[in-house]
């Protein structure tokens, strides 16, 4: 009995380790590349170590830092605007029945299902007409299109799980519209805010094609500078930018969890 249990545990451990290595190995290779100087093909480890990539990025002349700034600012703005729009939209889809609801649901999901190129092409023409091409606002709007389906879907399911009862109860207890939202609905939306915030930020942050199309090279984000380095074979700088990329996403995730999660609350899903 004891032996078989040990065996089981051993197998379990090995499987976990394999998955861990599989998941972490690209990250480890990135780390090695970021700090290497010479790494010829065929050798397991770099021959020489160096900080060339990091120096390049920190050098103001190369404008990488300002690109990082633009990227973060853009994705934060996209996440904020998308959240503000997604909450009422999710509520409408999650709680109410109205004519044409199915069509609206499909349309909301469409930007995820249909390849971004097709949307981008169509919107590009319209944006040229309205002078939105090559502007920050234009890029923000196109990011909203791809990001919002996630937010709306998440908030629709949160509202669905919540139902109307909490709102009715707070209405009965004399809360007006804003009080109901702030004191009752918002705490229930917290888990949804965390998930959708992280998801929307990351989708926006790693958007390449649409930023390139609408931004026209004037609005430069991190994926836009990352791509040429990987493409041209300067793996060192490419790896450093990739690491920064991952780091920003992780930091954002950490901050959003910290800010939103209520330490007093036991389960993160009140309504379960």
């Amino acid at each position: 009995m004891g032996v078989s249990m040990d065996k089981k545990q051993l197998v379990h451990k090995i499987i976990v380790m394999i998955f861990f290595i599989l998941l972490m190995s690209p990250f480890l290779i990135l780390l090695l590349w970021a700090f290497s100087k010479v790494w010829t093909a065929g050798s397991i480890f770099p021959h020489d170590w160096g900080l060339r990539g990091w120096q390049y990025i920190l050098n103001p002349q190369n404008k990488i830092l300002s690109v990082i700034g633009t990227s973060i600012f853009l994705s934060l703005a996209v996440t904020l605007v998308a959240t503000i729009i997604s909450i009422p939209a999710g509520k409408a889809l999650g709680l109410y029945d109205f004519p044409g609801k199915n069509i609206v649901e499909i349309l909301v999901l469409a930007p995820i299902i249909i390849p971004p190129i097709t949307i981008g092409m169509g919107i590009h023409v319209i944006f040229i007409k309205y002078g939105l091409v090559d502007t920050f606002l234009g890029v923000l709007l196109i990011h909203l299109v791809v990001v919002m389906p996630y937010g709306i879907r998440i908030f629709a399911s949160v509202y669905k799980a919540m139902g109307l009862k909490w709102e009715e109860q707070s209405k009965i207890l004399k809360a007006n519209n804003w009080q109901r939202f702030i004191y009752v609905t918002l705490p229930f939306l917290k888990p949804g805010l965390i998930t959708s915030g992280i998801l929307m930020f990351n989708v926006s942050f790693s958007q390449y094609f649409l930023t390139f199309l609408i931004g026209g090279g004037k609005i430069v984000t991190l994926p836009l500078v990352l791509f040429p380095y990987i493409n041209s074979g300067d793996r060192v700088i490419g790896s450093v930018i990739s690491l920064i990329f991952i780091l920003i996403a992780l930091i954002f995730m950490f901050i959003i969890e910290r800010v939103i999660t209520d330490p007093k609350q036991k389960s993160s899903y009140y309504y379960l």
Binding site: K165, E168, Q169, I172, L173, K174, Y183, P187, Q265
Partner: peptide, 29 residues
Amino acid sequence: PAEQRDIVMVFQDHLLFPHLSVAENVAFG
């Protein structure tokens, strides 16, 4: 509207706000 009536209802499910303490719940209105 319900919030302006001098009438209060207790539902079948207690519907206490889970993120508020008992005192905060009682004092919510």
